[in-house]
């Protein structure tokens, strides 16, 4: 790791003030420290935000759920309200990482985790996300695990989160505070950015802006399902994952992981549910641009949806 200085923020105001002079926030640290060891991330100052009392889960006056930014993945997955009202979120969280990592990883940190594209991780390789302008090693290289939709000629890295896929299907909002104290709420649909020509810019956050919570709208009811397909049955990133909510009134929602630079959701796919799994897959992947190595993911999305529809019919 490159040398850095370290401070503990005592309040949100403290944290954003420290960040405005160039510091980086550290919460669980499970992704950031990994990347710092590889010198992919090289912050000169770390601001520890673990003591800001952002670790509560509470109902909103409207009937939704406000999840503090520092709530650990284990605590969120196990929370009684989440298990009962937002089961797709519990399921997605439990499908990710290991028990040790979920005990440390936070809600905000999970949203901000970086891609696991092997070219991003290997500092000897070109990567526009790690080193803008250096090129993309993956486009003509090993791309089996990478994105097939929402990509650009500059980057085909996939977003690795399971949690964010469930939050996308639930239409969560990301609540933040900026260095000047301004607060805003960003719909998760807009929070993550597609790579375009600037794959190193991954989300809407401005320098020094801090996530304080993630808010879920009122419970949807119905049947919640999360299906994850991966190379091992546990402790592996998704090749393809699907978060689905069948609301019981004929409405359906689908969000996809492992296939795009952000949690992937297409309105036309939600609308195609009555026509079956194949139609949903076709609508979700209408703009797909796979490589020869990851074209199999198109069929895998369709197969996973077929399996998920059967699961829903078996347990309505």
């Amino acid at each position: 790791m490159k040398p850095f200085t370290y401070s503990r923020a005592a309040s949100v105001e403290d944290a954003v003030a420290a960040a405005s002079s160039g510091g980086r926030f550290i919460a669980g640290g499970t992704n950031l420290l990994d990347l710092m060891k590889l010198q992919i991330e090289t912050p000169s100052h770390l601001i520890d935000v673990n003591h800001l009392e952002l670790d509560r889960i509470e109902r909103t006056p409207e009937g939704g759920l406000r999840i503090g930014a520092m709530v650990r993945n284990t605590a969120l997955a196990a929370h009684p309200d989440v298990r009962r009202d937002y089961a797709v979120l519990s399921r997605a969280l439990l499908a990710g990482a290991s028990g040790q990592l979920r005990n440390k990883a936070t809600t905000a940190g999970n949203l901000l985790q970086r891609t696991r594209c092997p070219y991003f991780y290997d500092t000897r390789m070109p990567c526009n996300k790690r080193k803008p302008g250096s090129g993309c090693g993956a486009l003509k290289g090993g791309s089996r695990s990478l994105a097939i939709v929402g990509t650009s000629d500059a980057c085909i890295a996939q977003h690795p989160s399971d949690m964010a896929v469930a939050m996308r299907v639930l239409d969560a909002a990301v609540d933040t505070v900026a260095a000047d104290g301004t607060r805003r709420s960003i719909p998760i649909a807009d929070f993550h950015l597609l790579p375009g020509d600037t794959p190193h810019i991954e989300n809407q956050l401005k320098p020094g802006e801090l996530i304080t919570s993630v808010t879920l709208p009122n419970p949807l009811g119905g049947t919640h399902v999360y299906r994850k397909v991966r190379d091992r049955s546990s402790y592996a990133f998704a090749l393809v994952s699907v978060a689905a909510v069948f609301d019981g009134q004929g409405g359906s929602r689908f969000a996809f992981g492992g296939i795009a630079p952000k949690p992937w959701r297409v309105a036309a796919a939600d609308a195609a549910a009555a026509a079956g799994a194949g139609a949903v897959a076709q609508a979700a992947l209408a703009d797909a641009r796979p490589t020869a190595q990851n074209a199999f993911k198109q069929q895998l999305v369709a197969s996973t949806l077929t399996s998920l529809f059967r699961q829903k019919e078996a347990r309505p």
Binding site: Y6, I26, G29, L33, G99, Q100, L101, N103, K104
Partner: peptide, 22 residues
């Protein structure tokens, strides 16, 4: 790098990877 679990310890009773925390 938090992949193997050999460094697992209990902090406040919870298991974590001690290699991925300062």
């Amino acid at each position: 790098h938090g992949q193997c679990g050999a460094c697992t310890v209990l902090v406040e009773g919870q298991r974590i990877n001690s290699c991925l925390t300062l």
